[in-house]
Simulated assay, not measured.
Amino acid sequence: MTQVIRTAAELQEKVAGWKRSGILVGVVPTMGALHDGHLSLARAARAQSDRVIVTIFVNPKQFNNPEDLTKYPRTEAQDLALLEAEGVDVLFAPQPEEVYPEGFATTVSVAGVSEMLEGAKRPGHFDGVATVVSKLFGMTQAGRAFFGEKDWQQVQVVQRLVRDLNIPIKIIPCPTIREADGLAMSSRNVRLTAQDRSRAPALPNAMQHAAQSIRSGVPIAQALEEATAMIVAAGFGEVEYLELRDAETLREVSDLSRPVRLLAAAWLGDVRLIDNIDV
């Protein structure tokens, strides 16, 4: 049975006991509303760790839009049942005051890789991510952390954070899990209307089209322009960005001499979808 723990002190006491026995601890940080993408991370953690902690914390510091924070789905009882079925050892679900107690005054900021794309569109978002991830790593004392590649930029931010601050944890990126029609799984997908849900696969489809075009020699700007037009024609609203970037630094690229990633963010109704693919 999955044990629910809500305080850092109780969690650290349990983890300390595990570590005294030489047990390797894996953690999967989430904001809840779990889907099969999250569960794939739990399975990876189970395969590569002796004990698995899944955290559920809807982090207010990474929402630059208060309305988005309010609307974010919270389904802890359902999530717990899913985690028990996966054999997760601990669900760590702290209250906001446990993570950010009165007087909390520290912000962790990762320069460079956090400043473009999502960072430019959502000011303060990655400061919130870096701060809460630092807290969760300290609270759980895990040796490995598992993150989905759907949030590619987030993975790069976390990897830079760990390297720069010498945090003794190994970051394990895991492949994006998709629906049968290609849409990347996301907790926000449940907010799509039935009509918009039917349109949503146009985003990954257009991205695949752009990737194939770029690989075949079509100029990058032309391929991205054609893919953007496809997304809009499918019924999307604003395409905030569709860009080819260096896979690690996320800097702009003009050729395929280094590993690159195609990243996108677009609005469908009042839901903002993000995605990325290898090129």
Rank of each mutant, 00 (worst) to 15 (best):
L80K: 03
D127S: 03
I5C: 08
W267L: 09
D275W: 01
E102F: 11
Q78I: 09
V239S: 12
M230L: 15
H209K: 12
A130I: 11
R43A: 15
D164M: 14
G17T: 01
K121L: 11
G143A: 12
D36F: 04
N65F: 04
Q3F: 10
K150I: 11
E238P: 09
I172S: 09
R261W: 09
L165T: 14
G148Y: 04
R188A: 15
A77F: 07
D79N: 05
D68Y: 01
T228V: 10
E243D: 14
Q222R: 07
A194T: 13
D151G: 04
V113A: 01
A47W: 02
V4P: 15
S187H: 07
E102P: 04
F92E: 01
G87E: 08
D151S: 06
P168S: 05
W18N: 08
A247V: 03
V155W: 00
T7H: 12
T228D: 10
F92H: 07
V132T: 03
A221D: 10
E243M: 03
I167W: 01
G26P: 04
Q62G: 03
D68M: 02
L91P: 04
S198L: 14
K121C: 05
P204T: 09
T249C: 09
A223I: 15
P73E: 15
V190A: 15
V25N: 00
V15P: 00
A266S: 02
R122E: 08
N59Y: 03
E115A: 13
S134R: 03
P204A: 09
Q141F: 04
D164C: 14
D278A: 02
R74P: 08
E76I: 15
K170F: 07
I167S: 00
F92G: 06
G269P: 08
D89R: 03
L224V: 15
E238S: 10
V108E: 11
A93W: 10
A105G: 15
G182T: 11
W18L: 07
L262V: 07
I171Y: 00
F236M: 04
M207P: 07
R43T: 12
T70E: 12
Q12R: 13
K135S: 05
T140V: 14
K14L: 06
L161T: 08
G124T: 02
G269S: 14
E243T: 09
D255C: 04
E118K: 03
C174K: 03
E252G: 02
L83W: 06
G112A: 09
S187V: 07
P66W: 00
T7N: 08
H125F: 11
L80D: 02
L250C: 12
R160A: 14
